[in-house]
Computed example of a mutant assay.
Amino acid sequence: MKQEERRFQTRNRLLEATKALIHEKGCHSITMKDIMEKSQLSKGAIFHYVKSKDEIFALVLQERLEETNQRFMAEVEVNEKTFAGPMHKIMLSLSSLEASNEVTNMVLVYLLGKENEPAVAEVLQRFYERSVQLSRTWIVTGQQHGVIPQSVNADKTAEMFVLISIGMRVRSSFPAISASFTSADFSDLIVNQLQPE
């Protein structure tokens, strides 16, 4: 087995075990010992990739962003001249923003509670910047393929979408909130912003 493949498998085991533990126990109760037992990885194997539990949580956030980006870009390759296909891949992920038991929502809220720790602040900044970067890339890609008007300000629109998505993720942790702005409304807003009539 090649070293790159081994790295991928180890990282995947680490992330899958961590996500399962988050569902079982929540972010606050998980220990590194729990992660080692669930993943069946040694402390050394884990610390080869990360320095702390918070860094593992950051990888969980990063993984979701990259998965969404891969689905979007794969759809662009197949349907480069349409708006509907690639945007459908983005829209599929929007309902998860409202789910209180969705792992990335739980992780984000947990990390936001630790934002005064320098390592966590750095993780949050990287997550925010990467989120904006990917949103901007998706908009620019649509503009390059002629399905999103050039008049759309990619920087401002990308940041607005990220701010709304973070707000929805945080709101998902509030008990018994009756939301009037839903993922369907967010989807409509995206379409209206990116395909003005």
Results as ranks from 00 to 15, higher is better:
residue 1 M to V: 15
residue 6 R to K: 15
residue 6 R to A: 15
residue 6 R to I: 15
residue 7 R to A: 14
residue 9 Q to S: 13
residue 9 Q to V: 13
residue 10 T to C: 04
residue 10 T to R: 10
residue 11 R to D: 06
residue 11 R to W: 02
residue 12 N to L: 14
residue 13 R to P: 00
residue 16 E to H: 09
residue 17 A to V: 06
residue 19 K to T: 08
residue 20 A to C: 07
residue 22 I to H: 03
residue 24 E to A: 14
residue 24 E to Y: 05
residue 24 E to D: 14
residue 25 K to T: 03
residue 29 S to E: 10
residue 35 I to N: 04
residue 36 M to I: 01
residue 37 E to G: 06
residue 38 K to Y: 05
residue 39 S to G: 04
residue 40 Q to A: 09
residue 41 L to F: 01
residue 42 S to Y: 01
residue 45 A to T: 06
residue 46 I to F: 00
residue 48 H to N: 05
residue 50 V to L: 01
residue 53 K to Y: 01
residue 55 E to C: 01
residue 60 V to T: 15
residue 60 V to N: 11
residue 64 R to Q: 14
residue 66 E to I: 15
residue 68 T to G: 15
residue 69 N to C: 05
residue 69 N to S: 14
residue 70 Q to H: 13
residue 70 Q to K: 13
residue 70 Q to F: 07
residue 71 R to W: 11
residue 72 F to T: 11
residue 73 M to H: 12
residue 73 M to R: 15
residue 74 A to E: 15
residue 78 V to G: 00
residue 80 E to T: 07
residue 80 E to A: 07
residue 80 E to Y: 11
residue 80 E to C: 07
residue 81 K to M: 08
residue 82 T to K: 11
residue 82 T to Q: 12
residue 83 F to S: 10
residue 86 P to C: 03
residue 87 M to T: 07
residue 87 M to I: 03
residue 90 I to V: 09
residue 93 S to I: 00
residue 94 L to H: 07
residue 95 S to E: 08
residue 101 N to Y: 12
residue 101 N to T: 11
residue 103 V to H: 07
residue 103 V to Q: 08
residue 104 T to H: 12
residue 104 T to A: 13
residue 105 N to W: 09
residue 106 M to T: 04
residue 109 V to P: 04
residue 109 V to K: 12
residue 109 V to E: 09
residue 110 Y to E: 08
residue 111 L to R: 02
residue 112 L to H: 08
residue 117 E to N: 04
residue 118 P to W: 02
residue 118 P to S: 06
residue 123 V to N: 12
residue 124 L to I: 01
residue 125 Q to P: 00
residue 127 F to P: 03
residue 127 F to G: 05
residue 127 F to E: 11
residue 130 R to Y: 08
residue 130 R to A: 10
residue 132 V to D: 05
residue 135 S to P: 01
residue 139 I to W: 08
residue 140 V to T: 14
residue 140 V to R: 15
residue 141 T to C: 09
residue 141 T to A: 10
residue 143 Q to L: 03
residue 144 Q to K: 12
residue 148 I to C: 11
residue 150 Q to D: 03
residue 151 S to D: 07
residue 151 S to F: 00
residue 152 V to F: 03
residue 152 V to T: 01
residue 153 N to P: 00
residue 168 M to A: 01
residue 171 R to W: 01
residue 171 R to I: 03
residue 173 S to I: 10
residue 175 P to W: 07
residue 176 A to S: 12
residue 178 S to M: 12
residue 179 A to T: 13
residue 182 T to D: 01
residue 182 T to L: 02
residue 183 S to M: 04
residue 184 A to Y: 06
residue 186 F to A: 04
residue 186 F to K: 03
residue 187 S to W: 02
residue 190 I to Y: 07
residue 192 N to R: 09
